[in-house]
Write a protein that binds this DNA or RNA. Structure first.
Lengths: 243, 243
DNA sequence: CGGCAAGTTGAACCGCCTCAATGACGGTGG
DNA sequence: CCACCGTCATTGAGGCGGTTCAACTTGCCG
């Protein structure tokens, strides 16, 4: 059997070492793959049946729509991320999930998850770790939207995405693919796409970062982190020097 | 032994029935009580030792400070709420906890928690339920700050607090004690205290709600919920009629 | 070539912030 | 008993960050 490590395995391996049994169980969780087209929903808000997903390939996002048609993006999911773990226990999912790009997900039933984590408790702990890391990101996101200005919060998101992608081996903090357009950025950061455009221009003019053609190129990581007041501790990974 | 049900027991009892063994275990978790004075920290950001707390009496809050001295309140904790569950698994706590009023907390060690939840898995599930409910509240908070205007997000918070207090028997959705001053409200909602003042005046003038002398009196719950676009599904309780 | 999605730019507006004062209240000490 | 605090609430005036509305551009795809 070929050694294909999924993004999830790469991520969890950074948290703890995985023995063959655990690797095999993860492989089984990730077996039931399914493709979802860009721009389509995986789970819709207030849906009652609860399955969770592991994102295998592509980018997705969690969001919530409001009365007036405006949208708040809660978080972006990258390969290796769980989606919908949070709402497995709640009776109704509190928000929706959709694909940014075409994506591949592994669907896991609640029953299957419980069975696996009961048999291999260390995997359960790892999943909890991943979940609390995700929640810490949402908290940081709230801090950004509540108390950082447009420039700072945009910088913050761009730094965070780079670190997360580096974590699963899909880019580096200084340069990574990013299929997120200015509308997504706006809805994530509580701004308008028009203003995001001006913000990105300013970040470019200040020699900090360029966002173009589906790529983010960071020219001055230190400067970008300083602007964002970025402290990556909540990602629970070895911090870069000059954190 | 007298039948004193803690707020935590009252809350969990709404989620699932608790047998005597479970009640006894909860009682033991809540035994090690400690008083903390208003305005003092329980856990400080980047602290590495991890204990969690159950809030027994009083109000507390989770927050994060920024470089420039501004503060973002992540959430308010009410009696019966866990505090710090989220960061037990992360290597460093990502934010601080402090008391709003004088509070009584029960301190629980990670070891004690693991032991209890292993012995009584249903309690573990209940704790997970509480944790995902808390996270859903943070998500809703993010939506408020990102996409609702000052009036809407203030209304949203006031409605939510009422329902949560009612949930643990400490008030009703229409009238409840609330020791939160305008500075706390401002830091929670991503606004300034000055603007909160004007917002509260407007809410009062519109006959929706009065916030005064440590109490919230809702005059028009329906109207307040409509303004806030409030859908309480994420609290996972029977929704009021006319949700 | 036409059409649509995404990006870019300008100008005017407005929600909320900043700065500055003033009022209401309870606590404390002289 | 009152003068003096400190904390919180309240109000006004002016300014700024981000929105809104309205083009126009660019690139891709059929």
């Amino acid at each position: 059997m070929a050694v294909v490590t999924s993004a999830l395995v790469r991520k969890l391996a950074r948290f703890m070492s995985l023995d063959p049994l655990e690797l095999e169980a993860l492989g089984r969780l990730e077996r039931a793959r399914r493709t979802v087209r860009a721009d389509t929903d995986l789970v819709h808000e207030r849906q009652t049946e609860h399955t969770a997903f592991i994102l295998e390939e592509g980018w997705a996002f969690a969001y919530k729509m409001l009365q007036d048609g405006s949208r708040q993006v809660i978080d972006f999911a990258l390969p290796g991320d769980f989606m919908g773990l949070r709402s497995v226990l709640l009776r109704t999912s509190d928000h929706s999930f959709a694909a940014v790009t075409d994506i591949v997900v592994a669907e896991i039933s609640t029953r299957q998850m419980i069975e696996t984590f009961q048999r291999l408790p260390r995997l359960g702990v790892a999943a909890l770790w991943a979940a609390s890391r995700d929640e810490a990101m949402v908290v940081e996101h709230l801090v950004s939207v509540g108390r950082r200005d447009a420039l700072e919060r945009t910088a913050h998101l761009l730094v965070e995405l780079g670190l997360r992608l580096e974590f699963v081996g899909l880019g580096t903090a200084a340069s990574y693919p990013c299929p997120i357009n200015q509308y997504y950025l706006a809805d994530a950061l509580g701004l308008t796409a028009i203003h995001i455009n001006r913000v990105l221009r300013k970040l470019r003019e200040q020699g900090l970062v360029t966002v173009r053609d589906g790529r983010v190129e960071v020219h001055d990581l230190k400067g970008l982190r300083r602007l964002a007041d970025y402290h990556g501790g909540y990602l629970d990974q070895e911090d870069e020097p000059e954190g």
